[in-house]
Design a protein around this nucleic acid. Structure first.
Lengths: 168, 168
DNA sequence: TATTCTATGATACACTTGTCTCGCGGGAAA
DNA sequence: TTTCCCGCGAGACAAGTGTATCATAGAATA
């Protein structure tokens, strides 16, 4: 008898393996269970459905997405640094983000950016327009996602320059 | 025999009516077809599924408002105009957007903005950085969504000024 | 008026989803 | 060793999805 965590792990990795070969929508619960070597009922005992598997995976590694030091940008160089940092973490987790996107769960990342930028701005400039962090988060999020669509082929400096030039 | 456009319209409005009363996930294609007064097969003749109906809505109901004039911003006043326009349409369609958000389908609106901004920039400035339209779309999208969270209580001029000041 | 055209509803079908039982079998406790 | 526990696979089941076929009503055309 396996531990519950092991069973979950088998299921998660099975889905990821399948997602390398097949389109997310085409993958059926039966396929995942078979690949994981468990019964379909077992799958449903641990997960509500396919999407729940992805959510589970990301909830267990959200910490890795936190970008290094939360410096508040005071000059153009700081802006470049923060923006490059965000893109850097994104690129380092390219594959998980591709899975997120395919599962229509990318907004979890946007929520994450919103939360972090809001806190950053609130600490430093409580007086500033409260929508400003969302403005930054939104453009970083969307550019990141389109960058991902292009398989992150442009280098980070180019993207960072685009962002910073546009807002500075 | 109804025109095809009418039939599509019945289906779209039927879905939106149902979304007032029921959770998006609980609404079945059969329900939509019944509410629209058409057969289920007719639904599938025009739409690939529920989500496709929402996409259609944004393609055909919002396009004329947002990009009817299709001015490409050349000065600060143009920027204010375009941005105010986007927020204006958003506010005018506040209720549908709230439904979208509840259904976790807001990214369809982001897709819509991306598509339109890309086309606008491509026509006017084929040489510009191709990520620029996504930068604008992303920040407008995210600020709009947070604005919606606040029940659109701030007035459009304030928001438009924030955006334009940030990028100009 | 007669004929063609076509959007439609009805219906059947294969497949997937999500829920629910039931009995097996291996590990832990007695 | 024996008994109990419980995660698990197997499979049944209702409901929803998406596709395909077919006959029909009614508008357009001749």
């Amino acid at each position: 008898m396996e531990s519950e965590e092991y069973t979950k792990h088998y299921i998660v990795t099975a889905l990821f393996k399948l997602m390398h070969a097949y389109e997310y929508e085409k993958i059926k619960v039966t396929d995942i269970a078979q690949k994981a070597g468990v019964g379909r009922a077992t799958f449903y005992r641990y997960f509500k459905g396919k999407e729940d598997v992805i959510t589970y995976y990301f909830e267990h590694r959200t910490r890795e997405f936190v970008f290094g030091q939360r410096i508040y940008p005071r000059c153009k160089e700081d802006y470049v640094k923060v923006v490059s940092d965000v893109f850097g973490v994104f690129e380092a987790n390219k594959e998980p983000f591709q899975l997120l996107k395919r599962a229509h769960l990318s907004d979890l990342y946007l929520n994450f950016l919103n939360k972090n930028f809001s806190e950053m701005f609130a600490e430093e400039h409580p007086d500033k327009n409260p929508y400003l962090p969302y403005l930054y988060a939104g453009m970083l999020y969307n550019v990141s996602m389109q960058w991902l669509e292009n398989d992150c082929k442009e280098d980070i400096q180019t993207l960072a320059a685009l962002i910073v030039d546009a807002i500075y």
